[in-house]
């Protein structure tokens, strides 16, 4: 079985994002870019399934501009067999991303697609669910544990009420939560090896994906700031202050 993995490049989670003063966007020039943490987890899970013999091939998919190649090389260095780069300089929203993945699925016929539950830039949390709907296949979102056997995935999902276990017939879409696994680190020799692994570039326009019905972002603003409060000297003063506010 083949596993298709979403491997998105985002602003690194340690970067404190600044909104441009004119409200036209956020400052991304010169900031550190990394793999979306949830996608590193997705790739790690796929690699483990390959190591267990459940899958034969792991393919990382990136949708973005020409310079995405170096990022995809990281995915290859981590262990993916090959990469698909869907080339576009346009903003790709979740519904379009899902439609792109569907096109790739038609071509690659994977048994499993693993995406991050959300990308930490737009925090949309949509692509996997949309893809599952368009593909008319099961979705197992927010996965904390995945077991594959007998043509189905048994997935423990992290939900508000606790842990939900569902069973999904393959092929299916899984989206990862943080506790699914701890991604491995890339080692130097792997970076060398990755240089010879194939990256298949596909022009977005050649896929014939419908891109209408986009949300238009008209303004960016910094969030309302909470002001720094006061330091109290001891427990008694804290309790008194909270009682005075009617909170205790």
């Amino acid at each position: 079985m083949k596993i298709l993995v979403g491997y998105k490049r985002v602003v690194d989670y340690n970067v404190r994002i600044q909104v441009k003063p004119d409200g036209s966007g956020v400052v991304t020039d010169g900031v550190k870019l990394s793999a979306n943490p949830f996608d590193d987890i997705a790739l790690e899970e796929a690699l483990r399934l390959r190591e267990k013999g459940v899958a034969e091939e792991v393919i990382v998919v990136g949708i973005g501009p020409a310079d995405l190649t170096s990022h995809l090389r990281n995915g290859l260095a981590m262990g993916a067999n090959r990469a698909i780069h869907v080339l576009t300089s346009e903003a790709v929203q979740p519904l379009t991303a899902a439609r792109i993945f569907l096109k790739l699925i038609e071509k690659e016929q994977p048994g499993l697609v693993i995406l991050g539950k959300q990308a930490i830039d737009d925090d949309a949390n949509q692509t996997g669910q949309m893809l599952a709907a368009l593909w008319d296949r099961p979705q197992a979102t927010f996965a904390g544990k995945v077991e594959i056997a007998d043509g189905k995935a048994t997935v423990t999902r992290e939900v508000d009420a606790g842990l939900e276990v569902i069973e999904a017939e393959l092929p299916a879409v899984i989206t990862t939560d943080l506790r699914l696994n701890e991604p491995r680190f890339i080692k130097l020799p792997d970076i060398m090896k990755a240089k010879s692994k194939p990256i298949d570039s596909i022009e977005f326009s050649s896929l014939g994906v419908d891109t209408h019905d986009h949300l238009k972002t008209t303004h960016y603003a910094a969030p309302a700031k909470r002001s720094k409060g006061v330091m109290v000297k001891d427990a008694a003063e804290l309790v008194a202050a909270l009682k005075q506010k009617g909170l205790l």
Partner: peptide, 19 residues
């Protein structure tokens, strides 16, 4: 919530609209 986040995008995709 995890309920809404799970189901709403699937509805949006079936309707062919952004969420």
């Amino acid at each position: 919530t995890t309920f809404g986040k799970d189901v709403a995008p699937r509805v949006a995709a079936l309707l062919g609209v952004a969420q």
